[in-house]
């Protein structure tokens, strides 16, 4: 079927009063266009859609024979079920709330995820890779999406399988019915660590923390600017700054989770108004 000669376009020549016309069998609504490898929507596409719909219905009806929609006991403000697990698609959010204050994990971060997803087409200047699956032609874009996606799914897996009573960390082999003793180490803000390690005053330590926090963003902003000039030039300043704010925030979320899990750091920056 796929014949190169058939797909050739016959350009109109202004010097000639005639054009090449071919008589074809069939009634085609596509006039004044090159011959295409098209088929009628009815029945070809409609039948695929119908089969899809039927398969989904069948799968769902089959599923509900074995699994039923859960219904817990009547709402009771005085008792929270232990542990209180959100539906799977919000477990990532529930898990993130353990690591950050609610104004960030519950409001700003979801907002940034939504806005970050929305602006992606506007900061991705790579014209390649439209209309087919490819990794090699757009490695960085795929990496970004996969990183966010992985972060989301890892937190879902943690929330589903590694959290137990009192939202404590339970390994798959630990006793899920026994309340764990809260960790003996208490969570501390990063500047307290500096106070203990370096014997400096609290204000100096807080200054360190602010420098580390701002330095992370500053260095992150500058490294591609100096060492990956091609990347910067392809985006332009506006796109670059927008993209890097979201990119560094996403990486920062991963870093903070690691800091919390391994070193029990509660906050990195402490101010009278907001703590991160």
């Amino acid at each position: 079927m796929e014949n190169k000669a058939v797909r050739e376009i016959f350009p109109r020549d202004a010097k000639k009063s005639y054009g090449l016309v071919e008589l074809m069998k069939g009634a085609s609504p596509i006039v004044r266009k090159e011959p295409e490898d098209t088929v009628y929507t009815w029945p070809n596409l409609i039948m695929i859609e119908l089969i899809c719909a039927l398969l989904v219905t069948a799968a769902l009806i089959l599923l509900v024979q074995f699994e039923h929609a859960p219904l817990r006991s009547l709402a009771d403000p005085s008792t929270t079920p232990n542990p209180m697990r959100a539906p799977w698609y919000f477990l990532g959010l529930q898990e993130i709330l353990v690591y950050f204050d609610p104004w960030y994990a519950g409001v700003v971060l979801p907002g940034m995820i939504i806005v970050g997803l929305m602006i992606f087409p506007y900061v991705d200047t790579n014209p390649k890779g439209v209309g087919y699956y490819t990794y090699s032609e757009r490695k960085f874009a795929v990496f970004n999406y996969s990183f966010g996606f992985a972060l989301w799914w890892i937190t879902i897996v943690i929330g589903t399988y590694l959290r137990g009573l009192d939202w404590q960390w339970y390994w798959p082999w630990s006793d899920k019915l026994a309340h764990m003793n809260p960790a003996l180490v208490t969570l501390v803000p990063l500047h307290i660590v500096f106070v203990n390690l370096l014997h400096v005053s609290k204000d100096v330590a807080k200054g360190f923390c602010d420098i580390i926090f701002l330095g992370y963003f500053a260095v992150g902003m500058l490294i591609p600017y100096f060492f990956m000039r091609k990347f910067y030039d392809s985006m332009g300043a506006g796109r670059y700054i927008t993209f890097m704010i979201f990119f560094l925030s996403m990486m920062g979320v991963g870093l903070k989770i690691i800091l919390r899990l391994l070193f029990n750091i509660k906050y990195i920056v402490v101010t009278p108004w907001i703590n991160v």
Binding site: T80, P81, P83, M84, V98, L165, D166, W167
Partner: peptide, 9 residues
């Protein structure tokens, strides 16, 4: 001797 929250620990 602790109060513990079941939602986020």
């Amino acid at each position: 001797k602790r109060f513990r929250c079941p939602c986020h620990g």
